[in-house]
Amino acid sequence: MDKEKIITDWFYQFSDEIYNFLLYRIGKTDVEDLVQEVFIRAMNGIENFHENSSPKTWLYSIAKNLATDEIRRRNRKKWKTFIPFKANHEPSSDESPDRLLQLNEEKKMLYEAILSLRPSYKDVLILRGIQSHTVKETAEILGWSENKVRSTYYRSKKALKNRLGGNIHE
């Protein structure tokens, strides 16, 4: 099959999921460019994609790596001085996604608590907790063993509970 057609199919199937993942992972609303970049990279590297693995987990792993790079790039940007330079993904706004997702006070608190955790905890909470991926899928996306996914998910929930304290109504 033509690679443009494959990417188009994948785009219509998974773009919303990838968009959501990036939205939660980066904590900013301007992630459309990154969604595009995920599919551009997939299209350029489609020859390396093994037919027997899942395109969804492959796209997610690209998105995860891109998100890591993007967060670093944005942190690095704080250090830039003197001359503004062009970057591939200049943030168009600093609006937080809680408005876009229309989060109520309680969910906003949960969302902010997730964002404050370490990257590996964030990854596993978004993939397992919010997007309900299976342990196997999460392990494939993150490149971890299934046991590591289970233990990290457990620890991240514990850390999340500590972060929330008694702030969430039962």
Partner: peptide
């Protein structure tokens, strides 16, 4: 609580535009 977190969607217009850029 985590499962009930809302999901955002890209509009069909946005998707068309993005796909065009990707290709």
């Amino acid at each position: 609580k985590m499962e009930s977190m809302p999901h955002a969607h890209l509009s069909p217009k946005q998707k068309e535009k993005m796909l065009h850029t990707i290709i």
